[in-house]
Simulated assay, not measured.
Amino acid sequence: MKAVIPAAGFGTRFLPATKAQPKEMLPVYDKPTIQYVIEEAVASGIDDIIIVTGRNKRSIEDHFDKSFELEQTLQSAGKDDRLRQVRAITDLADICYVRQKEQKGLGDAIYCAKKHINDQPFAVMLGDSITKGPVPCTKQLIDVFDKYESSAISLERVPKEKVERYGIIKGVEVEKDIYKIDKLVEKPLMHQAPSNLAIMGRYVLTPDIFDKIDETEPGVGGEIQLTDALSKLDAIYGNTFEGKTYDIGNRLEWLKTSIEFAMDDPESKDNLIQYMKEIVDGE
């Protein structure tokens, strides 16, 4: 199975930080966001990855490419641990890049990868969200896909006041944490939302989704919405993710995620706690 990672957006909510660099390359603690996504794909058994990019995204390619000068410098300095880290990034997966020439929405970005999918099921992993759980989120979806032989998407319950930020589903729970989806609505008003089960940026899709995207007219924001195309599929299931999803789509959530990940590092945890206490006590 291949994975498609859409990473062509402008990242306007992070300006001016994203004026000349992709939001997917913003660091979360000690790694760029998109590296966590690719590590999840690999942990899920996927090492053939298509990243859909746009203008000003060259640093993504550079990050996963071999860096002869850097490796030579680290080797000469005897920094073997750093050298292993750098080489591990290059060896993570086989990655190719496809350009989305115009910003037409998430559905269109995925459609750009059609020629590379070869009429096979594939995963979609949004490049600005990170997941953490006992079993990788995408692996959980692959298991659902294998069991029901239908497209599967990751779900998470969100507070009612936040449903307007997400695609929301209506469905019937067919077994614990798995829903047969009847309806999908992109960013509904709170009083119109059919539930508080939100689509959280991970999908395993059958290749007929490309035909459904092709049939989909521009929707919310004048863009081709993936949610609208998903609603045209004959069958689709949702899996409530056993774990936590980090939406790195706004500054506060990005900052909170960085702090939380830093707290997982024994070398940083105690100093970070002390620093935060000093800030709070100084208020």
Results as ranks from 00 to 15, higher is better:
Met1Ala: 11
Ala3Pro: 02
Val4Tyr: 04
Val4Thr: 06
Pro6Trp: 06
Pro6Glu: 14
Ala8Leu: 14
Ala8Asp: 07
Phe10Val: 06
Gly11Lys: 07
Gly11Arg: 02
Thr12His: 15
Ala17Val: 15
Ala20Ile: 06
Pro22Gln: 03
Pro22Arg: 00
Lys23Cys: 15
Glu24Leu: 02
Lys31Arg: 10
Pro32Ile: 02
Ile38Leu: 13
Gly45Arg: 04
Ile50Met: 07
Ile50Val: 11
Ile60Asn: 04
His63Leu: 10
His63Pro: 03
Phe64Ile: 09
Lys66Ser: 07
Leu70Asn: 06
Glu71Asn: 07
Ala77Pro: 01
Arg84His: 09
Gln85Pro: 03
Ala88Gln: 10
Leu92Val: 08
Ala93Tyr: 04
Ile95Cys: 06
Val98Asn: 05
Val98Pro: 03
Arg99Glu: 08
Gln100Val: 05
Glu102Trp: 14
Lys104Asp: 03
Lys104Val: 03
Lys104Arg: 08
Lys104Phe: 04
Gly105Leu: 01
Leu106Met: 11
Tyr111Gln: 13
Cys112Arg: 12
Lys115Cys: 02
His116Met: 15
Asp119Thr: 07
Asp119Ser: 11
Pro121Gly: 08
Met125Ala: 00
Gly127Pro: 01
Thr131Gln: 08
Val135Asn: 03
Val135Asp: 06
Pro136Gln: 06
Pro136His: 00
Cys137Met: 08
Thr138Cys: 14
Lys139Thr: 06
Leu141Gly: 00
Val144Cys: 12
Arg157Ser: 08
Pro159Ser: 12
Lys162Pro: 00
Lys162Tyr: 12
Val163Tyr: 04
Val163Ile: 02
Gly171Ser: 11
Glu173Trp: 05
Asp177His: 11
Ile178Lys: 02
Tyr179Ile: 07
Glu186Trp: 09
Glu186Asp: 15
His191Ser: 10
Gln192Trp: 01
Asn196Gln: 15
Ala198Asp: 05
Ala198Lys: 00
Met200Ala: 08
Tyr203Val: 02
Tyr203His: 01
Tyr203Gln: 01
Phe210Arg: 01
Phe210Gln: 03
Asp211His: 10
Glu215Ala: 13
Glu215Asn: 15
Thr216Ser: 14
Gly219Ala: 07
Gly221Glu: 02
Glu223Gln: 15
Gln225Met: 02
Leu226Cys: 02
Thr227Pro: 01
Asp228Ile: 02
Lys232Phe: 10
Asp234Thr: 11
Ile236Asn: 04
Tyr237Gln: 00
Asn239Trp: 09
Thr240Arg: 07
Phe241Gly: 00
Glu242Ile: 04
Lys244Tyr: 09
Asp247Cys: 04
Gly249Leu: 09
Gly249Ser: 14
Gly249Thr: 11
Leu252Lys: 15
Leu252Asp: 06
Trp254His: 15
Lys256Met: 12
Ser258Tyr: 09
Ser258Phe: 13
Ser258Glu: 07
Ile259Val: 12
Asp264Met: 14
Asp265Thr: 06
Ser268Leu: 12
Lys269Asn: 14
Asn271Pro: 02
Lys277Trp: 05
Glu278Tyr: 07
Val280Gln: 04
Asp281Leu: 05
Glu283Gly: 15
